[in-house]
Design a protein around this nucleic acid. Sequence first.
DNA 1: ACCCAGGTGTTTC
DNA 2: GAAACACATGGG
Length: 221
Amino acid sequence: MEGVSYKKLILKINNGYELYEKLKELNLIEDADVRWWPHSGTFEVVIGAILTQNSQWTKVELSLENLRKFNLLNLESLSQLDVVTEAIKPSGMYNQKAERLKLLSENIKMTFGDFETFCAEVSREWLLEQKGIGQESADSILCYACKRDAMVSDSYSARLLNHLGWEFSSYDDVQSFLKSGIDDFYDGEKELSIVYAQFHGMIVEFCKRHCKGKKIDLELL
DNA sequence: ACCCAGGTGTTTC
DNA sequence: GAAACACATGGG
């Protein structure tokens, strides 16, 4: 294939909804995979949200495979610190993460009893009180495990928006921008929670392909 | 040998 | 508050 020429254009994005529409044109996620995060709606998402912190998703998949192999993907088994630590080594920072998974699973059991009740009743505030769960992980869990209307922001979102000419100083600011316009212009075809879920998914998929560190190729936008 | 990856908590100014 | 650091592995 000779000289694929990309058309470079200065993209003017005024709010989150315009970015959402732009990304949608690129077919970054499969239609069938409605919520994008693997095994959305299951406890595995909660574990993945911790494991993926500052590590590559491909490594998280290895850790999740190990956990699955030893039947550790459940609230009861995560208390077994030693085996869990061993299983999640591929995704790094395993001592911290294993300790935090143990604490989190124990607190979920103590406060909600089971995962279904947790999903139905947990609040963002409760999640933020847990050691090892910050704003991004809290929103990821709400959005992809509990299927709530939560817009996840992350370093990819900030980086992408930076390259589009926007600067933000906090997680909240980036999140607000991403949500801006969506309530007003959204046509109601799908649930809002799925719009948010896919929006963040598309940002990640786009950046995984076109953003490396501080570099980014916006040719495709 | 360096920088990075679907962050968070702690310490220090 | 913000800035610096630890956490830890494996790929480019």
